[in-house]
Design a protein around this nucleic acid. Structure first.
Lengths: 347, 347
DNA sequence: GTGAAAGCGCTAACAT
DNA sequence: ATGTTAGCGCTTTCAC
């Protein structure tokens, strides 16, 4: 064991490559070769080294490897927070995919550096991580501008950024909203309220567009009064729902731009003593896990959240292996999930 | 900018301490002093250095700092996965507390190394992180044994390990279960089914003990037939719920050992066309966010999940700052949360 | 207060 | 196939 001279150094002494080399009676670069793979090493030597390493309980020091060779085998994930079914499902996908790889995950939450996004990203990109997955709803440019070079590998999830060709994974928001609205029509609804998300989010505006397109196609006039402002949160959905339900001509169905808002709208409906789906139909978007736990179970549009995470990782690793590769955008399909929160309007 | 000689090195060139030193016209150890804090540096020199660094856009390389003897300022978190309200709430607390500190978070999920826990922990502890928070339900010893030295800083969340004095944060599981059972008694229930968690988890066994203690105190005979085996998942809760409801003398209330199981039990009750809480009362434990979203809203025992995460971080940082400090155990209080899933039994 | 120099554990030329 | 050597970017003695 090499004894650290530095007293402020981390306490736990560790076995290094040098110790293993001595134990095995070879030079320490040979040991390095054995553990960094790929190099040719005599089978017998390799065995000796592995045995020695095992005896000593050797484990590589990833920092040192990274410093010396360049790769940390860590990818960074930047998110607003993980206390949200939507994000944690995507993270689950990321995690799953990473499990098949040699990479580990560094989790960065944005709230820590509000207003200092640029510095944060620089710190992140400088050294520790090989690439970055950005799952941040807003102000992407603040983050992206700070990337140390044009070609630092990153991928955007669920948002598009047109100023710079960026590797991106998103879903068919427009189509999903279009399909869902048509489903409501097929049930006989024509007065369909819409609880919007923040318009700066392109997922939100695409969904609104899909809703409007379906209206148009059904030759139902678009009525701005039926669109209430929400913000993708249950609280916002609740308030928007209240507004919609107070309307003189109450909608018979409400399309909330995401599931969380739909939950809020459900609460609002209950406050009006309205039966769901008897008196009012409610639908959401995303199909987060809670959507099938609430009562009644929510009809919604499924985004392949887990798959989004997986694809994000795959795209990033692809980029890592082949930096020359051009940025590309993968748009995954959505799917109508019919559950118990809709019924034909009362006659 | 120093040009890396190694072609496989990460593409993005970065500004180093040497560049800053040259720019500022000082030696690079002075630059180091400026950024690693604490050392005495002439105020004017410091200003020059800071200015130069800013001009160049310098950011420290944490790996190098860590390797050289400093701290990585990263703590590791080991969890089974984050797709679970219980865990993600705790993580939220961890994240919040970390935000006030200089530390970043490395997220490790256990499923990647099943059967290789020891190796995994070694890898984690060896180098990259300064300390570790273990939020792993089972087989803790496999993990702990592998810690490089006796004094590698770690803290256990929601589990106790008696073989070695360990810094721990947990909650009053026994008391919570006791209180909750008594609440059910106060409503008039006496036939109270219990859906257990895995008995190896001490949270699960403590809750069962609390339930039994309340029974005893109320002089109600303990009936093993009323205890169904669950596993802390909705699926397990559903099956256990079914078993309980099939009993000749059906319980009038069900105490599920955690909220997730309670959700499963609710589904089971609905399958029997039982009204909750009219025909049967159901309670859970944990108060995860979903508990107030399900319908009817779940009566449960609140664990201060966020606070648990915060305390875990605080304990770890405390240990990091003062390695000599003895391990201690912090047990946080639980609290009865009465919502809509209980009513007196039908006469 | 500041500079010079050693070394953290490892990888990757460059030798042999 | 293996050993030698020079760093990766930084912290930390040890001089001055």
């Amino acid at each position: 064991m090499s004894v650290p001279k530095n007293p402020r150094k981390k306490a736990h002494s560790s076995v290094t490559i040098v110790d293993v080399a001595r134990e095995a009676g070879v030079s320490y670069s040979t040991v390095s070769r054995v553990f960094s793979g790929f190099e040719f090493v005599n089978e017998e030597t390799r065995r000796k080294v592995v045995a020695a390493a095992e005896r000593l309980g050797y484990v590589v020091n990833l920092q040192a490897r990274s410093l010396a060779g360049g790769r940390s085998n860590i990818i960074g994930l930047l998110v607003p927070g993980i206390d949200n079914g939507y994000i944690s499902e995507i993270v689950k996908g990321i995690d799953q995919e990473l499990a098949h790889s040699q990479y580990d995950l560094m989790l960065y939450t944005t709230h820590r550096y509000e207003g200092k996004e640029a510095y944060y990203v620089k710190l992140i990109a400088n050294g520790l991580v090989d690439g970055l997955i950005l799952l941040v709803p807003l102000i992407i440019e603040n983050y992206l501008q700070a990337l140390p070079t044009q070609d630092f590998p990153y991928v955007l999830v669920d948002q598009v950024y047109n100023e710079r060709p960026s590797t991106t994974v998103d879903v068919t928001n427009w189509q999903g909203a279009y399909d869902l609205t048509n489903y409501l029509f097929s049930l006989g609804h024509t007065r369909i309220g819409f609880i919007a998300g923040l318009n700066e989010l392109n997922s939100a505006s695409e969904r609104l567009d899909g809703y409007r397109a379906a209206l148009k196609q059904q030759r139902v006039a678009y009525n701005p009064a039926l669109v209430a402002e929400g913000d993708y949160t249950p609280g916002g959905g609740y308030r928007a729902g209240l507004n919609l339900l107070r309307l003189p001509e109450r909608p018979t169905a409400i399309f909330a731009a995401n599931d969380l808002s739909a939950f809020g709208a459900m609460d609002a409906a209950r406050e009006f003593n309205l039966d769901i789906p008897g008196d009012i139909s409610i639908v959401g978007f995303d199909d987060i896990p809670q959507a099938s736990i609430v009562y009644p179970k929510l009809t919604t549009v499924r985004q392949p959240l887990i798959q989004m995470g997986q694809v994000a990782v795959r795209l990033l690793l692809e980029k890592l292996d082949n930096p020359e590769k051009e940025a590309r955008r993968v748009t995954l399909g959505t799917e109508l999930v019919i559950r118990d929160s809709c019924a034909p309007p009362r006659a």
